[in-house]
Amino acid sequence: MGRDFPLFRTTSPVPAAERAAILSEPGFGRHFTDHMATAVWTPADGWHEHRITPLEPFSLHPSAAVLHYAQEIFEGLKAYRHADGSVWLFRPEENARRFIRSAQRIALPELPEEDFLAGVEELIRADEQWVPASGGEESLYVRPFMFATEAFIGVRPAEQVMYSVIASPAGPYFPSGVSGVSLWVSSQYTRAAKGGTGTAKCGGNYAASLAAQIEAREHGCDQVMYLDETGGEGNLEESGTMNLCLVTSSGELVTPPLGTILEGVTRDTILALADDFGLTPVERSVSLDELRAGAADGSITEVFAAGTAAVVTPIVGFKGDDFDFLIGSGTPGKQTVALRNHVLDIQYGRAEDKHGWMRRVI
């Protein structure tokens, strides 16, 4: 059994009219619900002070370890309103387990899976009115995170840590309809290397990706495509925020293997669903040369990225220092769109959940 997160309800919630206006056009990550979940860890007491409180700023000493040594991890998942008014999470147990793995890599204390789930679910229950209505692609984005709060200067694991969960209503990733994106294949930056932090969902990885994202935009692309540490004509790894998948003319769904990339929940979902769409899931290395040749001769018919925010994002083109090419006709592929729609239908309760992935909260 997980720890209880007792609710200390705010006395100053966002007014109903203002909340309704926000939910009508929430965007992504711009507005936040009325409450937050927190718990504290110390070596002496373990995890304690579990609670749901009004959303408020943290108070940190200037020497707090997270500010100097980036000892921090996070997760991202969504709560979905079904047509009957109930609210569900999609595979939150996988987020909880990945949170533990990230904590191990960043030398943070492990938060029990049941505590992770309790904090997430109790916050959603406290702020149920912030979960958008069913009927579109709106959801409540939930952000659990953990960071070192101990005040000290010195390179060692912190002995005071905070766990927290906040939530933000989110609109559809593609408000004007699903469209394809282009990726810049960076020869200057790599995301991770063997033995590094690539498999952990930690803020430092994302901070290091910002320069590469700027480079991509300077070349007219939406996101960056990373190669492995060999650089140049190396193997594909992942985009700046999502895992990579390719569909071949022979009916394979290919994705780079784990090891230095993030173990995405949506990635795993797509692999599990591949057979239902007549595709054979394959985890193997794919070189940039193979991608370029496959796009040219038609053996690679579709490419997409997979992640929580956009579910499935069609990738229609790639650019690099000396190349610029399209995938197929340069429009979202049929299998890509079909997979995306099916995952969404499961999440919103419009399709049968054959795998038992959905977890009811309300």
Rank of each mutant, 00 (worst) to 15 (best):
V87Y: 11
P62G: 06
R156D: 02
K319C: 03
T255P: 03
L123A: 11
W130T: 03
R9W: 13
T266D: 11
A148P: 01
F28Y: 15
G220R: 06
V361P: 12
R51L: 11
T313G: 12
V131S: 02
T199H: 10
T331C: 05
T260F: 09
L258C: 08
L291V: 15
G204D: 04
P57W: 11
I315S: 08
F304L: 06
S59D: 05
R143E: 06
E283T: 15
A65H: 14
R350H: 10
E18P: 00
L326C: 10
Q129P: 12
F28H: 09
A207G: 13
V181R: 10
G2A: 15
G135K: 08
N95I: 01
H61C: 07
L140Y: 06
G278Y: 08
D115I: 00
I270G: 09
L89I: 07
L326A: 14
E128K: 14
I73C: 03
I124M: 06
V343A: 04
A64F: 00
S209D: 02
D275A: 15
K334E: 15
G328R: 03
S63Y: 06
E122A: 08
F116H: 11
I270N: 07
G234E: 00
Y69I: 03
V316D: 01
E18A: 03
G349M: 01
R101G: 06
V361G: 13
P281Y: 06
T199F: 06
F174I: 01
L273H: 11
F74V: 13
E128V: 15
Y163P: 01
L344C: 02
